[in-house]
Amino acid sequence: MKDFRRTLLILVPYLWLLALFLVPFLIVVKISLSDIALARPPYLPQFSWADGIWSFLSQLDLENFAFLASDDLYWKAYLSSLRIALVSTLLTLLIGYPIAYGMARAPEEWRATLMMLVILPFWTSFLIRVYAWMGILSQEGFLNQFLLWTGLISTPLTILNTNTAVYIGIVYTYLPFMILPIYAALDRLDGSLIEAAEDLGCSRLSAFWLVTIPLSRNGIIAGSFLVFIPALGEFVIPSLLGGSGTLMIGKVLWEEFFSNRDWPVASAVAVVLLLILIVPIVLFQRNQQKQGDP
């Protein structure tokens, strides 16, 4: 009886994973092995019980993956996404760390308020916030109007529809995901360790480098993954703020699916993207587990 209960308990998360990850993923894999067709849905073959599963499987092929490999668009898009995600993660870290540090150092009675301020933007739809950036960054937008008014520039800057705008959008959107884990790590940090380091002859700066940073390492790693993983597949930000020169795999995926109506190729792109993402996700999981073990 006890064994049965235990099995049931383990079964639940596995069923969850099966229903919400594995089954959808297998459907995508199946489409990626099909051929494009003008039909509903727009790919062939369709599975039917009458023909039997083997005749269905024999019609599948790897042609779409060969197509991906033969066309440098996809590799360039993957690489460009990797670059944009890496640079954005770094920028988010550089901006997020001092904020988290300041929060952790703030007097106890302020912290709840500061935490609230970090979370507050989530109360507004993500889409509206990105849209607001279009109003700020456009040629006739607030930023240009302000800079023209101060006399810093004489002709408006073109920021909207460039990669710069994409970086601004990603860093802005994912900043809380960086701040919160770092704050959690810094908050737990025992202040007496820093005092000890200073007593033992460390300057404030070297105490920061040698004690604070290593002890907040787990927060930095968690925050970086939380920013990097969604940024890599980001679609909304590059499509709203990016321009014709912005190449990101999320956008390519959308184009293949909606504009080109090429579901098989879109699915192949998605499968490869997932395989690429598995590496950082596994690293992230291992880091989380290590953190759990004392």
Binding site: D72, K76, S244, E255
Partner: peptide, 11 residues
């Protein structure tokens, strides 16, 4: 569609 992607993305 491939040509269009090329025009839009430059690749």
């Amino acid at each position: 569609t491939r040509l269009w992607t090329k025009v839009k993305s430059g690749v």
